[in-house]
Protein backbone atom coordinates (compact mmCIF):
# COMPACT_ATOMS: atom_id res chain seq x y z
CA UNK A 1 0.00 0.00 0.00
CA UNK A 2 3.04 2.27 -0.23
CA UNK A 3 2.70 2.41 -3.99
CA UNK A 4 0.79 5.72 -4.15
CA UNK A 5 3.36 7.41 -1.91
CA UNK A 6 6.28 6.23 -4.02
CA UNK A 7 4.35 7.26 -7.05
CA UNK A 8 3.83 10.82 -5.87
CA UNK A 9 7.47 11.23 -4.89
CA UNK A 10 8.51 9.96 -8.28
CA UNK A 11 6.21 12.49 -9.86
CA UNK A 12 7.58 15.50 -8.01
CA UNK A 13 11.24 14.57 -8.19
CA UNK A 14 11.59 13.20 -11.68
CA UNK A 15 8.50 14.51 -13.31
CA UNK A 16 7.51 11.06 -14.52
CA UNK A 17 3.94 11.14 -15.72
CA UNK A 18 1.37 8.77 -14.29
CA UNK A 19 1.28 6.85 -17.56
CA UNK A 20 5.04 6.52 -17.83
CA UNK A 21 5.14 5.36 -14.25
CA UNK A 22 2.43 2.79 -14.87
CA UNK A 23 4.26 1.56 -17.96
CA UNK A 24 7.46 1.11 -15.95
CA UNK A 25 5.58 -0.89 -13.35
CA UNK A 26 3.80 -2.95 -15.98
CA UNK A 27 7.12 -3.76 -17.64
CA UNK A 28 8.40 -5.23 -14.41
CA UNK A 29 5.46 -7.65 -14.30
CA UNK A 30 6.75 -10.55 -16.40
CA UNK A 31 3.40 -12.31 -16.81
CA UNK A 32 1.72 -9.13 -18.00
CA UNK A 33 4.48 -8.50 -20.53
CA UNK A 34 4.22 -12.08 -21.73
CA UNK A 35 0.45 -11.62 -22.06
CA UNK A 36 0.88 -8.40 -24.02
CA UNK A 37 3.43 -10.04 -26.32
CA UNK A 38 1.30 -13.09 -27.07
CA UNK A 39 -1.71 -10.88 -27.64
CA UNK A 40 0.10 -8.54 -30.02
CA UNK A 41 1.49 -11.55 -31.87
CA UNK A 42 -2.01 -13.02 -32.28
CA UNK A 43 -3.39 -9.69 -33.45
CA UNK A 44 -0.65 -9.29 -36.05
CA UNK A 45 -1.19 -12.85 -37.27
CA UNK A 46 -4.95 -12.30 -37.44
CA UNK A 47 -4.51 -9.09 -39.41
CA UNK A 48 -2.10 -10.70 -41.86
CA UNK A 49 -3.92 -14.03 -42.20
CA UNK A 50 -5.28 -13.53 -45.75
CA UNK A 51 -1.69 -13.12 -46.96
CA UNK A 52 0.25 -15.50 -44.73
CA UNK A 53 -2.19 -18.42 -44.26
CA UNK A 54 -0.44 -21.56 -45.53
CA UNK A 55 -3.49 -22.81 -47.44
CA UNK A 56 -6.64 -21.43 -48.98
CA UNK A 57 -9.46 -21.16 -46.41
CA UNK A 58 -12.03 -23.13 -48.40
CA UNK A 59 -9.59 -25.65 -49.89
CA UNK A 60 -10.67 -29.22 -49.16
CA UNK A 61 -8.90 -32.50 -49.81
CA UNK A 62 -11.44 -35.21 -49.16
CA UNK A 63 -9.05 -38.00 -50.12
CA UNK A 64 -6.54 -36.82 -47.54
CA UNK A 65 -9.08 -36.62 -44.71
CA UNK A 66 -8.00 -36.07 -41.14
CA UNK A 67 -4.25 -36.36 -40.63
CA UNK A 68 -2.15 -35.64 -37.54
CA UNK A 69 0.36 -32.77 -37.57
CA UNK A 70 2.96 -33.16 -40.30
CA UNK A 71 5.50 -31.11 -42.24
CA UNK A 72 2.94 -30.17 -44.88
CA UNK A 73 0.18 -29.42 -42.36
CA UNK A 74 1.79 -28.21 -39.13
CA UNK A 75 -1.33 -28.68 -37.03
CA UNK A 76 -2.84 -31.49 -39.07
CA UNK A 77 -6.02 -31.53 -41.12
CA UNK A 78 -9.71 -32.01 -40.34
CA UNK A 79 -12.04 -34.68 -41.72
CA UNK A 80 -12.47 -32.73 -44.95
CA UNK A 81 -8.72 -32.51 -45.37
CA UNK A 82 -8.68 -28.80 -44.60
CA UNK A 83 -5.52 -27.40 -43.05
CA UNK A 84 -6.17 -26.85 -39.33
CA UNK A 85 -3.65 -24.02 -38.95
CA UNK A 86 -5.43 -22.09 -41.69
CA UNK A 87 -8.79 -22.75 -40.04
CA UNK A 88 -7.48 -21.57 -36.67
CA UNK A 89 -5.97 -18.43 -38.21
CA UNK A 90 -9.22 -17.47 -39.90
CA UNK A 91 -11.24 -18.46 -36.85
CA UNK A 92 -9.00 -16.27 -34.72
CA UNK A 93 -9.82 -13.25 -36.86
CA UNK A 94 -13.49 -13.65 -35.98
CA UNK A 95 -12.98 -14.58 -32.33
CA UNK A 96 -10.68 -11.61 -31.77
CA UNK A 97 -12.92 -9.29 -33.78
CA UNK A 98 -15.94 -10.27 -31.67
CA UNK A 99 -13.89 -9.75 -28.52
CA UNK A 100 -12.67 -6.30 -29.50
CA UNK A 101 -15.69 -4.93 -31.33
CA UNK A 102 -18.27 -6.10 -28.77
CA UNK A 103 -16.08 -4.69 -26.01
CA UNK A 104 -15.85 -1.41 -27.92
CA UNK A 105 -19.65 -1.30 -28.12
CA UNK A 106 -19.87 -1.96 -24.38
CA UNK A 107 -17.21 0.66 -23.72
CA UNK A 108 -19.00 3.31 -25.75
CA UNK A 109 -22.40 2.76 -24.14
CA UNK A 110 -21.07 2.21 -20.62
CA UNK A 111 -18.72 5.18 -20.50
CA UNK A 112 -21.25 7.58 -21.96
CA UNK A 113 -24.03 6.32 -19.71
CA UNK A 114 -21.92 6.36 -16.56
CA UNK A 115 -20.40 9.76 -17.32
CA UNK A 116 -23.77 11.38 -17.88
CA UNK A 117 -25.30 9.79 -14.79
CA UNK A 118 -22.35 10.69 -12.58
CA UNK A 119 -22.07 14.23 -13.92
CA UNK A 120 -25.74 15.14 -13.83
CA UNK A 121 -26.39 13.56 -10.43
CA UNK A 122 -29.77 13.93 -8.75
CA UNK A 123 -32.85 12.47 -10.34
CA UNK A 124 -31.24 11.76 -13.71
CA UNK A 125 -28.59 9.72 -11.93
CA UNK A 126 -31.16 7.82 -9.89
CA UNK A 127 -33.25 6.89 -12.90
CA UNK A 128 -30.25 5.96 -15.06
CA UNK A 129 -28.58 3.81 -12.42
CA UNK A 130 -31.83 2.16 -11.37
CA UNK A 131 -32.22 1.08 -14.98
CA UNK A 132 -28.73 -0.41 -14.85
CA UNK A 133 -29.70 -2.30 -11.66
CA UNK A 134 -32.75 -3.72 -13.38
CA UNK A 135 -30.86 -4.89 -16.45
CA UNK A 136 -28.21 -6.35 -14.13
CA UNK A 137 -30.75 -8.71 -12.65
CA UNK A 138 -31.73 -10.10 -16.07
CA UNK A 139 -30.50 -13.50 -17.16
CA UNK A 140 -28.58 -11.97 -20.07
CA UNK A 141 -27.04 -15.18 -21.40
CA UNK A 142 -30.55 -16.42 -22.05
CA UNK A 143 -31.39 -13.04 -23.50
CA UNK A 144 -28.57 -13.28 -26.04
CA UNK A 145 -29.67 -16.76 -27.08
CA UNK A 146 -33.13 -15.32 -27.52
CA UNK A 147 -31.83 -12.50 -29.71
CA UNK A 148 -29.88 -14.95 -31.86
CA UNK A 149 -32.98 -17.12 -32.30
CA UNK A 150 -35.29 -14.26 -33.16
CA UNK A 151 -33.10 -12.22 -35.48
CA UNK A 152 -31.13 -15.00 -37.07
CA UNK A 153 -27.52 -15.65 -36.42
CA UNK A 154 -25.67 -12.79 -38.01
CA UNK A 155 -22.33 -11.40 -36.97
CA UNK A 156 -23.34 -7.78 -36.55
CA UNK A 157 -26.10 -8.77 -34.19
CA UNK A 158 -23.68 -10.93 -32.23
CA UNK A 159 -21.43 -7.89 -31.68
CA UNK A 160 -24.32 -5.68 -30.67
CA UNK A 161 -26.05 -8.23 -28.45
CA UNK A 162 -22.92 -9.05 -26.51
CA UNK A 163 -21.94 -5.39 -26.28
CA UNK A 164 -25.41 -4.48 -25.12
CA UNK A 165 -25.19 -6.70 -22.06
CA UNK A 166 -21.56 -6.07 -21.13
CA UNK A 167 -21.75 -2.30 -20.66
CA UNK A 168 -23.36 -2.33 -17.23
CA UNK A 169 -20.29 -2.71 -15.04
CA UNK A 170 -18.51 -0.18 -17.23
CA UNK A 171 -21.27 2.33 -16.54
CA UNK A 172 -21.03 1.75 -12.80
CA UNK A 173 -17.26 2.20 -12.73
CA UNK A 174 -17.42 5.34 -14.87
CA UNK A 175 -20.15 6.85 -12.72
CA UNK A 176 -18.26 6.45 -9.46
CA UNK A 177 -15.13 7.90 -11.09
CA UNK A 178 -16.98 10.90 -12.43
CA UNK A 179 -18.73 11.49 -9.13
CA UNK A 180 -15.43 11.82 -7.30
CA UNK A 181 -13.81 13.86 -10.09
CA UNK A 182 -16.70 16.28 -10.18
CA UNK A 183 -15.85 17.55 -6.72
CA UNK A 184 -12.37 18.59 -7.79
CA UNK A 185 -11.29 22.15 -8.47
CA UNK A 186 -10.31 21.80 -12.11
CA UNK A 187 -13.79 20.59 -12.99
CA UNK A 188 -15.38 23.42 -11.04
CA UNK A 189 -13.06 25.81 -12.86
CA UNK A 190 -14.18 24.36 -16.19
CA UNK A 191 -17.81 24.76 -15.19
CA UNK A 192 -17.29 28.38 -14.09
CA UNK A 193 -15.53 29.11 -17.38
CA UNK A 194 -18.83 28.20 -19.01
CA UNK A 195 -17.69 25.16 -20.98
CA UNK A 196 -20.55 23.09 -22.38
CA UNK A 197 -21.33 19.90 -20.43
CA UNK A 198 -20.41 17.65 -23.34
CA UNK A 199 -16.98 19.26 -23.58
CA UNK A 200 -16.36 18.92 -19.84
CA UNK A 201 -17.28 15.25 -19.94
CA UNK A 202 -15.19 14.61 -23.02
CA UNK A 203 -12.12 16.71 -22.22
CA UNK A 204 -11.87 16.56 -18.44
CA UNK A 205 -13.83 13.69 -16.98
CA UNK A 206 -13.25 10.80 -19.36
CA UNK A 207 -9.44 11.25 -19.69
CA UNK A 208 -9.07 11.37 -15.92
CA UNK A 209 -11.15 8.27 -15.39
CA UNK A 210 -9.17 6.32 -17.96
CA UNK A 211 -7.22 4.06 -15.60
CA UNK A 212 -10.06 1.92 -14.27
CA UNK A 213 -11.70 1.90 -17.68
CA UNK A 214 -8.59 0.52 -19.37
CA UNK A 215 -8.29 -2.18 -16.73
CA UNK A 216 -11.90 -3.18 -16.95
CA UNK A 217 -11.85 -3.14 -20.74
CA UNK A 218 -8.92 -5.54 -20.75
CA UNK A 219 -10.86 -7.87 -18.48
CA UNK A 220 -14.08 -7.54 -20.50
CA UNK A 221 -12.50 -8.76 -23.76
CA UNK A 222 -11.86 -12.31 -22.47
CA UNK A 223 -15.35 -12.65 -21.04
CA UNK A 224 -16.81 -11.48 -24.35
CA UNK A 225 -14.65 -13.95 -26.26
CA UNK A 226 -15.80 -16.69 -23.92
CA UNK A 227 -19.40 -15.72 -24.58
CA UNK A 228 -18.85 -15.95 -28.32
CA UNK A 229 -17.20 -19.37 -27.97
CA UNK A 230 -20.09 -20.47 -25.78
CA UNK A 231 -22.71 -19.41 -28.34
CA UNK A 232 -20.80 -20.83 -31.28
CA UNK A 233 -20.33 -24.10 -29.40
CA UNK A 234 -24.09 -24.39 -29.04
CA UNK A 235 -24.48 -23.60 -32.73
CA UNK A 236 -26.09 -20.24 -32.01
CA UNK A 237 -23.13 -17.97 -32.72
CA UNK A 238 -20.81 -17.85 -35.72
CA UNK A 239 -22.18 -19.90 -38.61
CA UNK A 240 -20.38 -21.83 -41.36
CA UNK A 241 -18.81 -21.03 -43.79
CA UNK A 242 -17.35 -18.53 -41.30
CA UNK A 243 -15.55 -20.09 -38.41
CA UNK A 244 -14.33 -19.14 -34.95
CA UNK A 245 -12.37 -20.82 -32.20
CA UNK A 246 -15.56 -21.74 -30.37
CA UNK A 247 -16.95 -23.41 -33.50
CA UNK A 248 -13.67 -25.23 -34.19
CA UNK A 249 -13.66 -26.51 -30.59
CA UNK A 250 -17.21 -27.74 -31.01
CA UNK A 251 -16.27 -29.62 -34.22
CA UNK A 252 -13.14 -30.91 -32.52
CA UNK A 253 -15.14 -32.21 -29.57
CA UNK A 254 -17.29 -34.30 -31.92
CA UNK A 255 -14.38 -36.29 -33.26
CA UNK A 256 -11.88 -35.96 -30.42
CA UNK A 257 -11.59 -39.68 -29.76
CA UNK A 258 -10.18 -40.35 -33.23
CA UNK A 259 -8.58 -36.97 -33.94
CA UNK A 260 -7.70 -35.25 -30.64
CA UNK A 261 -5.60 -32.55 -32.33
CA UNK A 262 -8.77 -31.06 -33.82
CA UNK A 263 -9.87 -30.26 -30.25
CA UNK A 264 -6.52 -29.43 -28.69
CA UNK A 265 -5.11 -26.82 -31.07
CA UNK A 266 -8.17 -24.53 -31.33
CA UNK A 267 -8.57 -24.97 -27.56
CA UNK A 268 -4.97 -23.97 -27.04
CA UNK A 269 -5.41 -20.85 -29.19
CA UNK A 270 -8.46 -19.74 -27.22
CA UNK A 271 -6.98 -20.55 -23.80
CA UNK A 272 -3.68 -18.78 -24.60
CA UNK A 273 -5.56 -15.65 -25.63
CA UNK A 274 -7.73 -15.71 -22.50
CA UNK A 275 -4.65 -16.22 -20.33
CA UNK A 276 -2.85 -13.33 -22.00
CA UNK A 277 -5.75 -10.96 -21.59
CA UNK A 278 -6.28 -11.89 -17.95
CA UNK A 279 -2.59 -11.56 -17.10
CA UNK A 280 -2.45 -8.23 -18.89
CA UNK A 281 -5.59 -7.04 -17.13
CA UNK A 282 -4.28 -8.05 -13.71
CA UNK A 283 -0.93 -6.43 -14.49
CA UNK A 284 -2.60 -3.22 -15.61
CA UNK A 285 -4.71 -3.18 -12.46
CA UNK A 286 -1.58 -3.32 -10.32
CA UNK A 287 0.33 -0.86 -12.51
CA UNK A 288 -2.46 1.72 -12.55
CA UNK A 289 -3.28 0.96 -8.92
CA UNK A 290 -6.96 0.37 -9.60
CA UNK A 291 -8.90 -1.43 -6.91
CA UNK A 292 -12.00 -3.54 -7.36
CA UNK A 293 -12.34 -3.19 -11.11
CA UNK A 294 -13.55 -6.78 -11.21
CA UNK A 295 -14.10 -9.51 -8.58
Amino acid sequence: MTAPAINSIAQTEQGTSLWRDAWLRLRRNRLAVLGLTVLLLFIVIAAATPWIAPYDYAQQDLELGATPPSAAHWLGTDIFGRDLLTQIMFGGRISLAVGFIATAVALLIGVTWGAIAGYMGGRVDTVMMRLVDIIYALPFMIFIILLMVVFGRNMLLLFLAIGAVEWLTMARIMRSQVQSLRQQEFVEAAISLGLPTATIIRRHLIPNALGPIIVYTTLTIPSVMLLEAFLSFLGLGVQPPETSWGLLISYGAESMEEYPWLLLFPGLALTLTLFSLNFLGDGLRDALDVRGAKD
Partner: peptide
Protein backbone atom coordinates in the same frame (compact mmCIF):
# COMPACT_ATOMS: atom_id res chain seq x y z
CA UNK B 1 -9.71 -22.48 -14.01
CA UNK B 2 -10.79 -19.00 -15.08
CA UNK B 3 -9.12 -19.19 -18.49
CA UNK B 4 -10.15 -22.74 -19.33
CA UNK B 5 -13.68 -22.52 -20.73
CA UNK B 6 -16.07 -25.36 -19.83
CA UNK B 7 -16.58 -26.11 -23.50
CA UNK B 8 -12.91 -27.11 -23.64
Amino acid sequence: GICMPSLL
